[in-house]
Design a protein around this nucleic acid. Structure first.
Lengths: 200, 200
DNA sequence: GTCTATATCCAGATAGAC
DNA sequence: GTCTATCTGGATATAGAC
C-alpha cells in the first residue's frame, strides 16, 4: 500500500477500483504490452476516456498494481515472521495460506503472476522496475531467516543452505501460481505436505 | 521439429537462424507483444525488411519457435521414457538434465520460458495455441507414467497420486526456469536431490 | 464524473531499388 | 539476398460536450 491519502481516497472510489480490478485480471492473463486500454475500458464497463480520467497512462495502472501487490506480500511475510510460532510451523502455515490463497481467490494468483511477470521481463515501466528492485528480495529473505531458525532448532533439514531452501520455496510457489493461471478452474491444488517434504 | 525439407533448409540458412535466435531471446525476455520487429531486426543485425523476407509476420516467428520448443521437449521426454532405467533413476536423470540444461545453456531456459508464457497467456496467435493444446499435456503424462511405475516398484512415494507428483515436478521446473530468466548469471541452481525429496 | 470524437504517434507490413 | 523508404492500421492519449 504505502500511498498517500488522496491516492487512497481515489482507490476507494468505485470506478477507479473497477478499472484497477479489470486491469489486474487482464495484465495477469495477457501481460502488460498485450493489454490494450480499450480492453481495460471494456472489461471494467467504462469508457476509454474514463480510464484516462483516473490514470495518466497504462503504465501508471500497472505500476500501482505492482506496488499494491508487493505491499500485500511484504505485509503478509512480515506478519508471518512476527508470529509466535516455531519456525517449521511458520513454513507449513505459509505454504497452506499461499496455496489456499491462490486456489480460492483468483486475485491472489493474479498478484503472483503480476509479480512474476514484472520480475522476469524487461518490458515494464522503469517506475515498476524500481519497486521490484526495492522489494523483490524481501520475501526470499524472510523465508531464508525462518529456514535458518528451523535448522537451528532441528526441525528443518540442514543438508541444504537456507538461501537455497528459500529459493526453491518461492520458485515452487510461483510455478504453481503460473499453473493455476494457465488452468483456472481445472487447477488441482497440491497437498502442502508434499512440498513440505523438501524442507524436512 | 517436424518441418518439411524446404523449411529445414531455410532454417539452416544463416540469416534466418540469426533472426530466430534473436527472436527467441527477445520473446523470452519481453514476451510476444512487447517485442517489436525492429527489436528483432536490431538484435539479429539485420534490417526490418530482411525479417519479413524470411517470415510472414511476427506471429509466424513466434509460432515456429513454439513448435520447435515442444518438438525438442517431447523428444527428450519420450527418449527418457524409452531408456532402460528404473523409474526412480529416470526421474533423477530428468531433474539433473533439466536443471543443468537451463543453468548452462541459456536457450534451454528460454524455451521453457516461451512455453510457460504461451501456455499462461491468452495473447498468443491461434496457431500457437493449437500447438500448445496439442502438445502441452504430453510431458506431464510421461512423468506421470514414470511416477506410477516408480510407485509400483516401491521406489517412489505412494502417498500422493502420480498426476499430483507430475504436476509438482513440472511446476517446480517452470518456476526455476523463470527464476533463471529473472536472475541470469546470478542464478544458483538448486541441488536436484532437494527437489527429489518430494518424490521419495 | 462520464461520455464521444478526434489527433497523434508508432509498430506492422509492403514495395521496390540495389 | 539485403536494404531503404513508405503505406496503413490500430493503439495511446487528448479535447471538449453533456
Amino acid at each position: 500500500m504505502a500511498r498517500n491519502q488522496e491516492q487512497n481516497q481515489k482507490m476507494r472510489d468505485l470506478s477507479s477500483a473497477r478499472i484497477s480490478a479489470a486491469a489486474l485480471r487482464l495484465f495477469a492473463e495477457q501481460g502488460l504490452a498485450a493489454t490494450k486500454i480499450s480492453d481495460i475500458a471494456a472489461a471494467s464497463k467504462s469508457s476509454q476516456g474514463l480510464v484516462y480520467h483516473y490514470f495518466k497512462s497504462k503504465e501508471e495502472i500497472f505500476t500501482e498494481l505492482i506496488q499494491d501487490a508487493f505491499a500485500k506480500l511484504n505485509k503478509a511475510c512480515l506478519g508471518l515472521e512476527a508470529m509466535d510460532l516455531p519456525p517449521r510451523q511458520k513454513i507449513e502455515l505459509a505454504l497452506r495460506e499461499l496455496i489456499n490463497g491462490f486456489s480460492q481467490h483468483v486475485d491472489a494468483a493474479r498478484m503472483h503472476m503480476l509479480i512474476a511477470q514484472a520480475t522476469m521481463t524487461s518490458a515494464v515501466p522503469k517506475e515498476a522496475k524500481a519497486i521490484i528492485n526495492k522489494h523483490n528480495a524481501k520475501p526470499y529473505e524472510v523465508i531464508e531467516r525462518i529456514m535458518a531458525a528451523g535448522q537451528k532448532d532441528g526441525t528443518i533439514d540442514a543438508e541444504h543452505e537456507p538461501d537455497e531452501l528459500a529459493m526453491i520455496f518461492w520458485t515452487t510457489i510461483k510455478g504453481l501460481a503460473m499453473h493455476k493461471a494457465a488452468h483456472g478452474k481445472k487447477f488441482k491444488a497440491p497437498a502442502p505436505g508434499l512440498i513440505m517434504k523438501m524442507f524436512v
